[in-house]
Design a protein around this nucleic acid. Structure first.
Lengths: 344, 344
DNA sequence: TGCTTCGGTGAATCTCAAT
DNA sequence: TATTGAGATTCACCGAAGC
């Protein structure tokens, strides 16, 4: 990283070791063993050693950040307070702390604490007086039922096919982050063509999402196995079409949308075609939750109205996705998410 | 606080100044003025000054905490990282960080950040090896649809009649916390009769909730107006009836019953065969309260573990006796003894 | 094919009294 | 202070297998 040019990076996302201080083994009530993070890279001799490590990598990142760049760090209560304090001491200017609420956290097995159901991210500008950092306010609002995006995000853990596994079927990395989390980070605070850097590349989630979203990427990783897995993963990523990524420019009166969660959860992919019930109109889903019909870009509601030539339209009950079983109303997909949210 | 006896307090709740770094006035889009926290008590010359202040009050609290006491601190990204770091440096042991998600946060007026929709609380024991702190796990679970309580809490801001107002109709304190938040804090980590302390009493939310929930309370406040308002508020509180506060009888708090008591009371006879739920294992009850499987003799737990080939086993929930109505778990027999003990 | 059951698992600072 | 043993303790989701 010391070889990179100063002031060359637009966005940093860092997922450093958390410095968990685990003592013995932990078993579930059914006596099964909890596969904890016991890797050497998470071991530090003291808080002071962790602080020195943290100060060093934060300074290295700060040097190569553009004046308009911002930095994200994710952590848990084990480390995030120390990271935040050091960031403030180094002159970073905290813009938000963001809570990643997990839909499916690991329970507390001994019943002696609250279930640790979230992690914390700090989003900060390089300096107190940084101006001109990227925050895609309008797109986030349009994708959130026309309400400002909040500092608490509800996103599932990385499981299933998304979780990288070795030939033995075991997870390659103990702490792989979900792509939905990174997608929201990159969509909120970077633009297509930006240079994104991750100093703790791991299995390359940041790079994979960056490539898919049309951002350039540099990652650093000292573990060869992680690096190899990440390279293969990122190479296999197909960037989304430019049209789904173009910056979203609208008046302050943003159109009604409520759509980005279907994308983040993988229920609808960017690039999917939405059609009306008689397939007379087809619109393209963008990565930021807006849709596109011809050269018109806007919310599902606005573009639905355009398609019909009417003044208003409830996009939820107008647009469908095509499945092998025929058309499916997007309102039904929303209903699925709502029932999940109610259950959680 | 320095006059209080060391080790005398069961629970501390602290809502310290947040060290907000507001520059000039903030206006809403309609040009109305946002009534922010601009009081002198929230002003510190530097991070170092704030850190010194924080270290001092945390040390003062730590001295008067019982070994089993825990401490809560609430803050925002302006101060919580510094508070958390200092707590760790002083030897406090973090049990959880808790996110208070606001149902109705103040929006972000400039559209340059995410809506700051949460605050963070740190819950910590006095020492790394603190044992026996209060955590009312079963009650919290019962109150939460029989699911473990999580680290993210959804609670509205303090508004309406609950918000203390002066004769001029203006709010007396800029950061009055909702009673619902304090109620959950006290119900989760204290018992009726405990001594609760708040070093930043403010308008007395902690004291009001403590009194209503049958906890004793001590608060410190240097502002006379706040103190007067708090005193009047707390005086008017009517404690809830004892019956609504009585501790929950839990598996942990239930009196211990030795397996031999079942024999002494004639509920199980020596020579009886104990079996697991699928009758794959059979063990013989000895007169001395041990049981025997093949040539192995030991406690119901030890022999249960041997039978399963596992390291540990709760014999109470593993072994059954055979009755004419089918199998009966010995844990049920223990429950009968306990209910007899409670009745007498 | 569709439904149910069962097993596996995820960044976890995870007991406590008696000796 | 360290050790020992009783005995208390899990939620959401995914995938495979069975029906």
């Amino acid at each position: 990283m010391s070889k990179m040019a100063a002031g060359s990076v637009d966005l940093v996302f860092a997922d450093p070791p958390y410095n968990l201080q685990l003592k013995g083994d932990l078993k579930r009530p059914d006596e099964s063993h909890v596969d904890a993070v016991t890797d050497d890279w998470d071991k530090f001799d003291s808080f002071a050693a962790y602080d020195n490590f943290t100060r060093a990598w934060l300074l290295a990142c700060r040097r190569i950040m553009k004046p308009t760049a911002t930095l994200w760090v994710i952590g848990s209560y084990h480390n995030i307070f120390r990271v935040g304090t050091i960031m403030q001491d180094l002159g970073f200017w905290v813009l938000n702390d963001i809570v990643w609420r997990k839909t499916n956290p690991m329970p507390n097995f001994r019943g002696r604490r609250f279930t640790n159901a979230h992690e914390t991210m700090i989003w900060a500008a390089r300096d107190e007086n940084s101006k001109g950092y990227t925050f895609n306010y309008e797109a986030l609002k349009a994708a959130n039922e026309d309400v400002q995006a909040r500092s608490d995000w509800l996103i599932p853990l990385c499981t299933g096919d998304e979780r990288l596994k070795g030939a033995d079927g075991k997870k390659i990395h103990p702490t792989q982050k979900p792509e939905g989390l990174l997608a929201r980070v990159l969509l909120s605070s970077s633009k297509p063509g930006d240079l994104v850097l991750d100093p703790f590349n791991g299995t390359g989630t940041t790079g994979a999402v960056a490539k898919r979203l049309g951002r350039h990427y540099i990652g650093f990783e000292r573990d060869h196995d992680y690096a190899a897995a990440a390279r293969a993963r990122i190479d296999a990523i197909e960037p989304l079409p430019d049209a789904t990524l173009a910056p979203f420019m609208t008046a302050r009166s943003a159109p009604r949308v409520a759509f980005s969660e279907l994308i983040e959860r993988g229920i609808i992919s960017p690039g999917t075609k939405l059609v009306d019930s008689k397939k007379r109109h087809g619109a393209l889903v963008r990565a930021d939750g807006a849709i596109m019909l011809g050269d018109k870009v806007g919310s599902i509601h606005r573009i639905g109205a355009v398609a019909q030539g009417s003044e208003a339209c409830n996009g939820w009950t107008f647009w469908h996705v095509e499945t092998h079983n025929g058309l499916r109303l997007i309102d039904e997909l929303r209903a699925e998410i709502r029932s999940e949210m109610a259950a959680s």
